[in-house]
């Protein structure tokens, strides 16, 4: 098997060409560090907004003096809708009581009110997948078509902003990952190409002695993977240092940073991506070289 000996040759080359390899490793580590910061930001935005669907609700204001059986009819219609998780009926009296409890320090607001100005309302909790600008608007339109529903309020702008924030962060993250990944592949490609030319005589001898292409390629693929792995591990140390030395220190003076989470998936992601991109760069280089 050529693989174990291929690994030996790769190790020897890593040692012999330590400066070229070190520069490549540090370049890859820097790129992976930026990638991991992007992952970090996207992960935290996602985590911060993940619990919002449970809290999100849509409020339906009902016609004045609506009959109880009509309300029951509306409730059962809404419950049949697949986007709706739960429906809570809030009679106008209860709504006023809740409002007074909220505004207990501002009772002057209610002075002079002879009758309850609030309408009967229905509070809808939506299923997770329905909490989005499109789905919420669709449900709102459907609700407005139900007889007895006067108005619907669901924080349209808030939902749209939230959606844009998540999509924007993900898009920027993906673009960054693609650009930097291409850069890493190129670094590995160039490194392997340089190493290949530096070992050209040795490779020629191997060929004349009967080495197959697989035997010649194996050490370079292993070396590419090892460079990528080292870059990934250093990048991981970098993001770890960033988290502990910067974010946790900042959280002492700015408590908002206490909510920042470390994406545990990075432990496997960074070394894994490093190996993958390193091997890919080496494979591309070997595919383009004539030997």
């Amino acid at each position: 098997m050529s693989l174990p000996y291929g690994a030996t040759l790769a190790l020897q080359s890593l040692r012999r060409e330590k400066w070229i390899n070190l520069i490549s490793v540090l370049t890859i580590a820097s790129a992976l560090l930026i990638i991991s910061i992007a992952v970090f930001v996207v992960y935290n935005i996602d985590a911060a907004t993940r619990s919002l669907p449970e809290r999100f609700s849509m409020v339906l204001y009902l016609d004045d003096d609506i009959q109880k059986d009509r309300v029951d009819g509306i409730i059962s219609t809404l419950r049949r809708n697949s986007a709706v998780r739960s429906v809570r009926y809030i009679p106008k009296d209860e709504a006023l009581r809740e409002l007074k409890a909220v505004l207990k320090n501002s009772t002057y607001v209610f002075e002079g009110l002879d009758e309850n100005p609030l309408p009967d309302t229905l509070e809808l909790k939506l299923r997770k997948e329905a909490v989005g600008p499109e789905a919420a608007r669709k449900l709102s339109d459907e609700a407005l078509r139900i007889k007895g529903v006067r108005e619907v309020d669901y924080g349209e702008k808030f939902l749209a902003t939230l959606h844009s924030l998540r999509t924007g962060a993900k898009t920027v993250g993906i673009v960054l990952i693609v650009i930097l990944s291409t850069g890493i592949v190129f670094v590995c490609y160039s490194t392997v190409k340089i190493l290949f030319y530096r070992r050209k005589d040795e490779i020629e001898t191997f060929k004349l002695l009967g080495a197959t292409r697989a035997f010649i390629r194996a050490p370079f693929l292993i070396e590419g993977g090892a460079i990528g792995l080292a870059g990934g591990l250093i990048g991981l140390i970098g993001i770890f240092a960033f988290y502990y030395a910067v974010l946790l220190r900042l959280s002492v003076s700015m408590p908002v940073f206490k909510a920042v989470l470390f994406p545990s998936g990075l432990f496997l992601f960074l070394p894994g991506v490093g190996i993958f991109l390193g091997v890919t760069g080496a494979a591309v280089a070997l595919g383009r070289l004539r030997y």
């Binding site: 005589d201 040795e202 020629e204 001898t205 060929k207 004349l208 002695l209 009967g210 080495a211 197959t212």
Partner: peptide, 17 residues
């Protein structure tokens, strides 16, 4: 490569590593 494995060569320029 398979054919080359049946042949041993003493190169003029040695080709030692």
């Amino acid at each position: 490569p398979l054919l080359r494995r049946t042949i041993g060569v003493v190169f003029q320029d040695f080709r030692l590593l």
